[in-house]
Design a protein around this nucleic acid. Structure first.
Length: 365
DNA sequence: AAGGCGGGGTT
DNA sequence: AACCCAGCCTT
């Protein structure tokens, strides 16, 4: 039988086993250098690691890959990114979500270029001061880029540690305890590879569902595996149900152009373009939603069907009103945008769904 | 301390 | 449908 003390006493052995596993199973990722290259004295590109880490916040590797490639193709260096317009950055980020990340990314790039001679700080505390870089990302850059020991705790690490030590306290209350154990393990030798190894283990072996314990280098020392509780860990506090909001969007098209407007810089989809709509009102049914006030005098049709989209904390249903203009009358704020160039606008996914709903094909970038 | 903040893959 | 993801920021 294992115990917490026995596991922590074996930490050096466990770290070695994980690094050995990583040497044989490390995934090849566009922003990553191989364990061999690193041990040959090569360091990863700080710009690449930073960019990838911002994109990977609450986002899977599979989703991030193509966006990462688009960014480094369009902006090969942090100087180029800093020189870009925010609207261009948001356009290239469109579809990746959590758009404050893109705004902070651009702000951080300008700050590093203008104030730090285009070089990222090597120290955790200095990285933490930069916009969009929190405890996780600062530790990730410190360890992965500079191979300086820093304790990386992300969702993967939370899961692995919760299982190894059979922590039954629900998240997020268990975070301090998880961090304590994670800090005990953080090695001074190969801290960068260790951090990536632990996250890779969580992403590919110690998965949320159907963990592949047979492939795990820590199988024999994992309390959850010994107790058979791995499928139940980590425990999370219950989440609130998502309400539904409903509203009407107005598709005003004339001569191949559609009227779009930019959303406020802060808040939901901040700084992104949108098809104008009325209020998204919380409601259990369309019966409670008043018939929309049409923004301009024009013939209009209510298109059949509903555009559905789910955000972090609510479901959205939009009905689309098509305005049949007889001349190119401006609505209120906004601009006429060429529909065929929809990929040149910062359109979030819900707005792309509206394009599809009205029968407009979307062009890929 | 709690809640806002996207979107997609997996089960 | 629910869950979760290489979290951060604001209030």
């Amino acid at each position: 039988m294992s115990s917490v003390t026995e596991i922590t006493n074996k930490k050096d052995e466990l770290v070695d086993a994980l690094l050995d596993w990583y040497d044989h199973h490390a995934r090849t990722l566009p922003w990553r250098i191989s364990p061999e290259a690193r041990q040959g004295g090569i360091s990863p590109n700080p710009y690449h690691v930073w960019l990838s880490e911002i994109m990977l916040q609450q986002t899977t590797v599979a989703t991030v890959k193509s966006y990462f490639e688009k960014f480094i193709t369009e902006w090969p260096t942090i100087e180029k990114l800093a020189a870009a317009d925010l609207d261009e950055v948001l356009t290239t980020w469109a579809g990746l979500g959590y758009y404050a990340r893109a705004r902070n990314l651009h702000k951080c790039a300008k700050q590093v270029v203008d104030e730090l001679n285009a070089e990222f700080p090597t120290q955790y505390d200095e990285l933490l001061k930069l916009p969009g870089i929190g405890a996780y990302t600062a530790a990730a850059i410190t360890s992965i880029v500079y191979d300086i020991p820093a304790t990386v705790v992300d969702g993967n690490v939370e899961r692995v540690i919760s299982r190894v030590f059979n922590i039954e306290t629900p998240l997020p209350d268990s975070r301090p305890e998880i961090r304590e154990f994670a800090e005990i393990f953080t090695p001074s030798h190969r801290p960068g590879d260790y951090a990536q190894a632990l996250m890779d283990l969580g992403a590919t072996v110690c998965t949320p569902k159907s963990a592949k314990c047979g492939n795990c280098p820590w199988q024999e020392d994992c309390l959850a595996h010994e107790l058979g509780t791995e499928a139940d860990l980590p425990v999370r506090k219950n989440k609130k149900a998502k309400p539904t909001r409903r509203g009407y969007a107005f598709w005003a098209e004339y001569d191949g152009k559609v009227w779009l407007r930019k959303r406020p810089e802060k808040g939901l989809l901040g700084g992104m373009m949108e098809v104008p709509s009325n209020e998204w009102a919380p409601s259990n049914s369309w019966d409670n939603i008043p018939t929309p006030r049409i923004p301009i005098i024009a013939n209009w049709d209510l298109l059949p069907g509903v555009v559905r989209h789910t955000f972090t904390h609510f479901h959205l249903e939009l009905k689309v009103v098509r305005l049949n203009l007889e001349e190119m009358i401006n609505l209120q704020e906004g601009e006429w945008c060429e529909i065929e160039k929809s990929n040149e606008y910062a359109l979030p996914t819900v707005m792309k769904k509206i394009f599809v709903h009205v029968g407009q094909p979307l062009l890929d970038l």
